[in-house]
Computed example of a mutant assay.
Amino acid sequence: MAAEEQQFKYIVRIAGTDIRGDLKLVYGLASIKGIGVTTAYAVARMLGLDPEMRVGFLTEEQIRRLEEAVSDLRKLGLPAWLFNRRKDYETGEDKHLIGADLVFHARRDIEREIRIGSWRGVRHKLGLKVRGQRTHTTGRLGMTIGVSRKKGGK
């Protein structure tokens, strides 16, 4: 038992993200940008890890396996519908991006839509809602104009 007992780590670094050691494994993985709770459950189960264990009790070997799995989810054999970038615009392949790569690709997609002048690009360019929401009363920017009351009266 003493050889298997592991030292608790208060901060664990996985995929360039510092994760608090007191979080359960799935919620710790979900704190990585680009990984949600569903994907975290899938990764934990495919690697044979208990999703309810605390991140601070992971061994170095488990952390290394998680790092490899998160960097390329295709190696785990997960279904393509679980990925966050299916049918990539340039390569046509299914990918799962995390961290800075996800932000970079999203920004590049928006810039491409602005450049080609699509409806979504025009809405982005004007700073308006893009996904069909109403704009008559919501999404206003700037200072609010409230109701002004007269001084002294009732």
Rank of each mutant, 00 (worst) to 15 (best):
G152T: 11
L66Q: 00
K125F: 14
P51S: 05
L82S: 03
S31M: 03
R123Q: 04
I14D: 00
I35N: 00
D72Q: 06
M143S: 11
I35V: 12
I14R: 00
L23C: 06
L49R: 02
W81Q: 09
R86Q: 11
I98M: 03
L78H: 00
L23K: 07
M46I: 11
T59V: 12
L102W: 05
M1F: 15
S148W: 12
F8P: 02
A100T: 13
G92H: 07
V12I: 08
E67L: 06
L73D: 01
K154C: 15
W81T: 15
R131P: 02
M1D: 07
R45H: 13
D94Q: 08
V130A: 02
S118Y: 03
L49C: 06
R123K: 08
V130I: 10
E5D: 14
V130C: 02
V12P: 00
G153H: 12
K9E: 06
E90A: 15
E68V: 12
R112L: 14
A100G: 12
R108V: 14
A2G: 09
V130F: 03
G153S: 15
L58Y: 01
G142A: 09
T135I: 11
S148K: 08
G56T: 07
W119A: 10
G142Q: 10
I32Q: 01
K151I: 15
R131L: 13
G132K: 05
A42I: 15
I19H: 01
R107L: 13
G48C: 12
R140V: 10
L102N: 01
A2V: 15
L29E: 00
G152C: 12
N84W: 08
R140K: 09
